[in-house]
């Protein structure tokens, strides 16, 4: 069963969440710089997965082109910073607005013309790839040469200007991810969450129950795009360099969606679990295959792991783990 809205936080669930947050808060203080950098990747993946999950996991519209919104968020905030010195957080707000407009427009166009299912999924790829190629020729943001942010060597972290250590980004992303978790939980328990899930399960029935399906689908896409763009903005200031072919890459879109699917599509914690597992797996494979000096070994194991998961737990690992840990929503 997917996406059961939690009715109330049972003591056991509250304790598990508290433990998780405590571990995540303490972790960067206990491990070396390399592990912190891996954890940053985990949190990016978790946050993007959570953002995508709203569109596909809750509202049931398969988007395969979410790199588009990462890129719009990243480029908008970075370009405004480079060209006008605009404060990153303001630039990220602008990026969210741009992405929400783009996502809303794509959704509105598609759903108005009754493009759905796999056609919609392929259309989202097309828009992402189209934009990637446009940015390859967009001189103002550096085209294929890339857009670079000046690196300042500060003695201390400056969260306001988003300059600082990986550890600062870690906490920032942790906050974003927890906020996304809270927002997702909140939305699922409100009318809009029920409506999205109804649309996911059966559009025609949803419509017959008075739901303006078109409006709610467009809203899901706009929100999901805006959240993704916020993460894209942070990514820009973490990476300090942007190339269309990596920021908008199809492979990024695929990475964004694999973690939540592996973890459990439509569940609250699935994207986080999926991010931990996939990033962890990826790192181990990278180290192993570097040691073995065989190119392709990492991808091979990665593909085999995906295959194993889709064969054994096609609805994701979190629903299974949740049962094992006795953390299911209270049934009364």
């Amino acid at each position: 069963m997917r996406a059961m809205a939690a009715r109330d936080l049972s003591p056991r669930r509250a304790a598990a969440l508290g433990l998780f947050v405590a571990v995540m808060l303490l972790l960067p203080l206990l491990v070396n710089a390399y592990i912190v950098s891996v954890l940053v990747v985990v949190l990016f993946s978790a946050y993007f997965g959570q953002s995508w999950n709203i569109m596909t996991g809750f509202a049931g519209q398969l988007s395969l082109g979410h790199a588009l919104y990462v890129g719009l968020g990243a480029y908008t905030s970075a370009a405004l910073f480079v060209h006008f010195g605009l404060l990153p957080w303001l630039g990220m707000l602008a990026g969210m607005a741009v992405a929400a407009l783009a996502g809303g427009a794509i959704a509105a166009l598609s759903f108005r013309f009754r493009v759905g299912g796999v056609y919609f999924a392929l259309l989202t790829i097309a828009f992402a790839e189209f934009t990637r190629i446009l940015f390859d020729h967009f001189g103002w943001v550096g085209a294929t040469e890339g857009l670079f942010l000046p690196v300042a060597n500060l003695a201390h972290d400056d969260p306001l200007r988003l300059r600082g250590s990986p550890r600062m980004f870690y906490y920032l992303l942790l906050a974003l991810s927890l906020a996304a978790l809270a927002l997702s939980h909140h939305l699922l328990n409100r009318r809009v969450g029920y409506y999205w899930q109804a649309i996911r399960e059966d559009e025609e029935a949803a419509r017959a129950l008075g739901i303006d399906v078109f409006r709610y689908k467009v809203a899901a896409m706009a929100l999901s795009a805006a959240m993704t763009a916020l993460g894209g903005g942070v990514l820009a200031f973490y990476d300090n360099n942007l190339y269309p072919d990596t920021v908008f890459a199809m492979s990024r879109s695929i990475e964004i969606i694999t973690a939540p699917i592996i973890g459990g599509l439509g569940t609250l914690f699935g994207p986080v679990l999926g991010a931990v597992l996939l990033t962890g797996l990826g790192e181990i494979m990278t180290n192993l295959s570097n040691a073995a000096e065989i190119s392709g070994l990492k991808q091979w194991f990665y593909g085999a792991a995906l295959l194993a998961i889709v064969a054994l737990q096609p609805s994701g690992l979190w629903p299974w783990l949740r049962r094992r840990l006795g953390l299911e929503e209270g049934r009364r």
Binding site: M1, R2, A3, M4, A5, Y194, Y195, Q197, A198, R200, E201, D202, E204, A205, A206, L209, G210, I211, G266
Partner: peptide, 16 residues
């Protein structure tokens, strides 16, 4: 019939 299969019976009716 078109139940929202992944939701509980109560949630189905709550949607309405």
């Amino acid at each position: 019939v078109k139940p929202f299969g992944g939701l509980t019976v109560l949630q189905n009716v709550m949607v309405g």
